[in-house]
Write a protein that binds this DNA or RNA. Structure first.
Lengths: 337, 337
DNA sequence: ATGAAAGCGCTAACAT
DNA sequence: ATGTTAGCGCTTTCAT
């Protein structure tokens, strides 16, 4: 049985409802926004008629008329990375009391710059853009912030509302943990070097140098598991193999891990591994990845609140909120042999 | 250094650009849509002025005037479940050639019905809604489809465009795999019973009965890892413990697995485990979850194409596309002892 | 090639 | 309590 699939791109307007009830369009508009000054009876009549006609409020038209957007845009770099899902959850949580619509836009490139995705948010006329994570250079982010209120999550940009976590402290804890375990050949696997995303690498390098060791950095194509897996080939040659790897994030740590297994290496016996994000996967039995928790959910919550504040007070000074981070030690790290 | 965060909710319009250049608003509009009838020079002048003024096209206003939405809405049940991320990727992939904007809406409840999320898509005036996964009863889905073109993903609804995979075949393969391994006490862990989401459970039950065995179904609060973990407590009592569990999806399989470990059970030695979705986590070394692949990416791609078709041909008969599924055997299942 | 004018669905003064 | 009217930023005939 295959009935025709109905569903016209909607057409019933407030005018239709008004005509049906026999009142003016204004009343209908008032009724739907709960504005005062509509008698209970007419209100009821309006709702009934709307129900029958199948009327649906047109938020786009309303925003246009009100000259004030009811929507907040959230840009996410990569949905496959659970951190961004957590950030999303946090944002939504803090936005839910405010009656704002939230629309998402996801980058189509996980390792390179994608201005289109944020652009489409602007063209959809959102009131503020929450962006996690922008890969553009600082200057471009600042320019973007000039054309739309912007909250940068995960990354600090001067003069722009920023909500991020302490990468320096997190990285220090991670690398020092490995040092304390006696490792000396500790490699770092990361993605392309974008301005504003080098804290972890630079901190890794400086901690290593301070310990009198030579840093070994491997750059992958992007920040994903696959890229890290591929890039880690360079580490698993027969000589000078590192005994530990500190990865830019959990995704990449997982990639290294998968490839290590392929090379016959066992974690942590042959290779200690530290990730970053403390994502759900890291916590699974059988994975047990030592990782730095950057409190992604809290990052999202804070970003949502910051966005709301910015909407209420467009002129205020740029917000700068740095959250803590903490190392969670699990079974993927062990003493060097 | 804390400069004020600028970024007004945008204000420069085509009229501003027109005034700047000294032409009519019409020309500006034409220029931006690449409509014919604008001389190269004026076009260039317009683009230059727009650039300088920081003009941004207002898609909402344009849609309103054109009386034709340029946006497609995608509803997702749960971003923590990678299947939905894959569906998203597939949808976007098939939508990218068409120049349609894609906006996402995510349910705020993973196990119960949330009409608001789809509602907000309708109010944002999308041309078609792709929904993965609707929990509403068939009748409600059909009614929804009457007010907006709807593509149901993951679930077949009579009279509504549906893109889904063969749950019966998938479940049969899964359960028969366990039977062939000699298991007789095979439990099934699933979420709340919603119409249209009972194929797997029912098929499990019928396969069990046909084999002369008694089905044992555990219902969790929702379809997540946490819920499954909690619910599986009932399975791990001292007596009559099942030797195998078939879970509704990989998330839930993971939950069962975590809880099994807590109870001192080892997979697959003490418990064989089969999931559904063949998500990325299932494929990780150390997890090695036997799972049914439902081709989520392909589901998404097909849904995107279906949505585009529906937009082009609103009156056509409802589409019904059933994709195959296949069991992927990994290390989480072993012969019964 | 360019412009004038009407209208999309809605809101918001400003009447009555 | 209810209605009138003028836009919001854009597209789109229809003129010129």
């Amino acid at each position: 049985m295959t009935r025709p699939a109905a569903g016209r791109p909607h057409s019933i307007t407030q005018a239709d409802v008004a005509r049906e009830v026999g009142v003016s369009r204004t009343l209908v508009s008032f009724a739907f926004r709960g504005a005062p000054g509509v008698s209970e009876e007419t209100k009821q009549a309006i709702f009934d008629a709307a129900k029958i006609l199948g009327y649906r409020h047109n938020a786009a038209a309303a925003d246009l008329a009100r000259k004030q957007p009811s929507t907040i845009g959230l840009f996410l770099l990569d949905l496959s990375n659970e951190v961004y899902v957590d950030i999303f959850s946090g944002v939504r949580e803090s936005l839910s009391p405010a009656k704002k619509r939230l629309i998402l836009s996801v980058s189509r490139s996980r390792g390179s710059i994608d201005p289109d995705s944020v652009g489409s948010l602007i063209e959809a006329r959102v009131g503020v853009v929450i962006a996690a994570t922008l890969l553009e250079p600082d200057a471009q982010v600042q320019e973007l912030a000039r054309s739309v209120p912007l909250v940068s999550v995960t990354r600090r940009v001067d003069g722009v509302d920023s909500v991020y976590s302490d990468n320096v402290a997190g990285t220090q804890a991670a690398v020092e943990h490995l040092l304390r375990l006696g490792h000396t050949r500790i490699a770092h696997v990361t993605g392309p070097a974008h301005q504003g995303h080098e804290d972890r690498r630079q901190t890794y390098e400086s901690v290593m140098r301070q310990a009198g060791l030579v840093p070994q950095v491997v750059f992958a194509q992007d920040y994903t598991q696959e890229a890290a897996s591929e890039a880690s080939d360079r580490l698993f040659g027969p000589w000078d193999r590192p005994t530990a790897v500190f990865a830019h994030n959990d995704e990449m740590a997982l990639g290294v891990r998968e490839n290590a297994v392929v090379h016959g290496l066992e974690v942590p016996r042959d290779l200690s591994l530290v990730g970053y994000d403390n994502s759900r996967i890291a916590r699974l039995h059988g994975i047990d990845l030592t990782s730095v928790d950057l409190h992604a959910l809290e990052l999202g919550r804070t970003a949502g609140i910051t966005a709301l504040d910015r909407l209420a007070n467009p002129g205020g000074p740029a917000v700068d909120r740095k959250l803590g981070s903490r190392l969670v030690v699990r079974g993927s790290t062990a003493a060097a042999t």
